[in-house]
Design a protein around this nucleic acid. Structure first.
Length: 734
DNA sequence: TGAAATTGTCATCAG
DNA sequence: CTCTGATGACAATTT
């Protein structure tokens, strides 16, 4: 559950979102269906009746929605076409009420066919496009499934064209976006695709989705794109949400991975594939001590080769960034089922979805290899998903069936349902293992794929040990994904370097490592590099990213508890130092840019204020001049026509408003006040100016010079004096 | 092809 | 003393 402040409004409006509500409702509905309560529709398939709720069916099946919508009364009966079989429909019905699809090889085609007819789009592409080729890849597939277009080519084209807008997350999302098949994406996918498409168009518009408002960043300048995105250009966003939209999206896709999981994140690895060749290990010491001795084109060529080789594997993924789950080795040699169950995990429950969980009450694998490791990994990621437990337990708690719920990136959960590992499972396991960076540990020695035997076991043991260690000492927050968000403010290219190095050296396959064929070329090209040579000697049982993520205490404990070789120590320290420094540099640059932006905003603000004041002054000046002209004309008229006496003139001057300076009444005063000696001898100047007045006053009163400086009893200067000062001040101010 | 921008890394300092 | 973060500087790389 989460509390989200709807930032659209200034007032503190919060939204309470329960992550268990939807599953609870679904479970209750399933219970009602089982008890045939409140069911309002009967579906007839091959003469067999299934009771259900119209709303549920209509929401899951386009076909049924159209059929059912015509009924208005309870007790409606829908007879499905004969192409839909019971074997195909029943799992779909359960899926509608449980989000989980249980199928086996013998009925997967029927299910798929029924799903296709009934319009179970959630399943169609996400599940069958992935599974069917695996099921029937060895033989000629009776139902060839169109493989999705590999959009990586498109992405690569975009990359090669220098479209920097595509980076890590873009690849993933763009692949979704350009899927030729009409997928039924999850909300997450929809959001990502929309964002990416908008982003590709050059600007992101505010979405009404609230939480997605972080994507409302208008990309204005292709340069500094990352920093613009990070800083929100002119509208800086809070620190915690400074991720650029791409990264954010990737995190959303990858947020299921526990923050502290030492497994190499496929999504992240793929996400960092914008210039993967760049991540090839550098020569640490090359004269000036900087890396980059490898020809970049050569790197790119190598990477393209790797990527091409990886495409086959990646094509089978139903969702990008999918993590295929190793089924592990079963203690049941005669289990033939090799059943798989697709479990759709609500996005809202990511925070509680463990990366790998074992359903309680189920048999533990006899072998301690992969099984033990996975078991140890479970607590590292947090709590076990209650819903998955309940439902799996309720439906799959059959003797001899071992159920493992393993989280998949694409918001699905693959629940392996027991059994000896079949070829499909093997593929799935291998795929997942590669995704996780632990392929070595899941390789089936019986298949002759295990290469180093004891070395692998050692690596595995260390991984287990460290996983246990980290489970116990982890200081991570309750929701590891939030931590992931925090720590993912910056990209992990450098980590990828280390990952690639570590993975390559340790024999652990990572999606980018290209551990076959290409390694020879890499060895030849980079064998002279001290760092690379050292890295080749390092065998790390976990990703460097995970090491970097550790806090100081955890890292110290890691060093104490784990026996590292000198090379490993150097490598770990070096990578940790460089990774942290890289992040620090990124933070530093981001702060710089923020500072520059702030200063620019301040400058703009001051400029605007100055313009405003200037206009106001100009306007007031015009008003003043206009008024003064009017007053001047009026006064002159009065003076000329009334023939005032000197004392009357003085009295008149006293009533002259300060709004109308003397310059208006007596134009000559401007020339007077501009004289150099005006400040020194204002009396004389004013006397000259007011000579015609003095003519009236000289006979009866003191000279005007004395009058101008006369201070009245109350301390106020005379009006004339004030006026002259005002004029002077005005002239100076202008 | 050159300039500008970006990014990783190192050295150094301060806490 | 060690570790970590910040930051200037440099170089490689990308745009």
């Amino acid at each position: 559950m989460s509390l989200m402040a709807t930032s659209a409004t200034r007032s503190s409006v919060f939204t309470f979102e329960s992550t268990v509500h939807s599953s609870h409702v679904l479970r209750c509905l399933d219970e009602q269906r089982r008890r045939d309560t409140m069911c309002d529709v009967t579906v007839v398939v091959e003469g067999q009746s299934f009771r259900a709720h119209r709303a549920i069916l209509a929401s899951c099946s386009e076909y049924l929605m159209h059929r059912i919508s015509s009924f208005s009364q309870h007790g409606a009966v829908v007879t499905l076409p004969k192409e839909v079989t019971v074997a195909g429909f029943e799992p779909l019905l359960k899926f509608a009420y449980t989000s989980k699809l249980l199928f086996e090889k013998h009925n997967v085609l029927e299910i798929r066919n029924s799903a296709s007819i009934l319009g179970f789009n959630d399943l169609d592409k996400a599940c069958f496009d992935f599974l069917l080729p695996k099921f029937f890849s060895s033989s000629k597939s009776p139902a060839p499934v169109p493989r999705k277009t590999c959009c990586k080519k498109i992405c690569k084209r975009r990359l090669s064209k220098g479209d920097g807008a595509i980076d890590s997350g873009d690849v993933l999302l763009f692949e979704k976006e350009v899927k030729p098949v009409a997928d039924s994406p999850t909300q997450q996918e929809v959001t990502g695709s929309r964002v990416e498409s908008q982003k590709a168009a050059g600007a992101l518009t505010p979405s009404a989705d609230g939480p997605n408002e972080r994507f409302t960043v208008a990309i204005q300048c292709p340069k500094y794109r990352k920093f613009q995105l990070a800083c929100g250009k002119e509208t800086c966003v809070p620190e915690k949400s400074l991720n650029n939209p791409v990264i954010t999206t990737v995190i959303k896709n990858d947020c299921e991975r526990p923050a502290n999981s030492p497994f190499i994140s496929t999504a992240q690895s793929k996400g960092r594939a914008e210039e993967p060749w760049k991540t090839e290990p550098h020569d640490k010491k090359k004269g000036d001590g900087r890396g980059g001795e490898v020809d970049p084109k050569e790197r790119q060529r190598k990477w393209n080769k790797k990527e091409k080789e990886m495409e086959t594997e990646e094509d089978i993924s139903p969702t990008d960034g999918v993590r295929v789950v190793p089924s592990g080795r079963s203690a049941l040699p005669d289990d033939r089922s090799s059943g798989l169950m697709l479990h759709r995990c609500p996005m809202a429950e990511f925070g509680e979805c463990p990366a790998i969980t074992r359903t309680p009450g189920h048999k533990r694998p006899s072998m301690d290899g992969a099984g033990g490791q996975r078991e140890s990994a479970a607590p590292a990621s947090g709590r076990t998903h209650p819903k998955a437990e309940d439902q799996v337990e309720a439906e799959q708690n059959r003797p001899g069936h071992e159920v493992q719920t393993i989280q998949e990136t694409g918001s699905n959960q693959w629940v392996k349902n027991s059994g000896e590992r079949s070829a499909v499972e093997g593929d799935v396991s291998e795929h997942l293992a590669k995704q996780l960076g632990f392929s070595q540990h899941f390789q089936d020695p019986e298949a002759g794929r295990s290469s180093d035997g004891g070395g692998s076991a050692k690596v595995q043991d260390t991984s287990l040990e460290w996983l246990k260690y980290h489970n116990l000492s982890s200081t991570s927050t309750g929701c590891p994904f939030y931590q992931e968000l925090d720590q993912s403010k910056c990209s992990w290219k450098g980590v990828e370097v280390s990952e690639g190095e570590g993975a390559d050296q340790s024999g652990v396959s990572s999606p980018n490592s290209g551990d076959d064929g290409d390694s020879g070329t890499e060895t030849e090209g980079d064998s002279e590099s001290y760092t690379r040579e050292r890295a080749r000697q390092v065998q790390l049982p976990f990703s460097v990213e995970w090491i970097v993520d550790l806090n100081r205490n955890d890292f110290q404990q890691l060093l104490k508890q784990q026996v590292f070789t000198q090379e490993q120590l150097e490598f770990v320290h070096d990578m940790r130092r460089r990774s942290k420094n890289r992040l620090a540099a990124q933070r530093c640059r981001k702060r710089k840019l923020e500072c520059i932006n702030d200063l620019q905003c301040e400058i703009n603000k001051l400029k605007t204020e100055r313009e405003k004041l200037m206009m106001e002054r100009s306007h007031l000046s015009q008003l003043r001049m206009k008024t003064c002209h009017s007053v001047s004309a009026l006064c002159q008229k009065v003076c000329n026509e009334a023939k005032l006496q000197p004392d009357q003139l003085q009295a008149f001057a006293q009533y002259t408003s300060s709004d109308c300076p003397l310059s208006s009444l007596f134009p000559h005063i401007d020339s007077l006040v501009s004289q150099p000696d005006f400040l020194l001898k204002p009396h004389a100047s004013l006397s000259a100016c007011f000579g015609h007045l003095d003519m009236y006053t000289a006979s009866e009163e003191a000279p005007s010079s004395s009058r101008t400086d006369t201070v009245k009893g109350d301390g106020q200067r005379s009006t004339l004096s004030a006026h002259s000062a005002h004029v002077h001040a005005t002239k100076e101010s202008f």
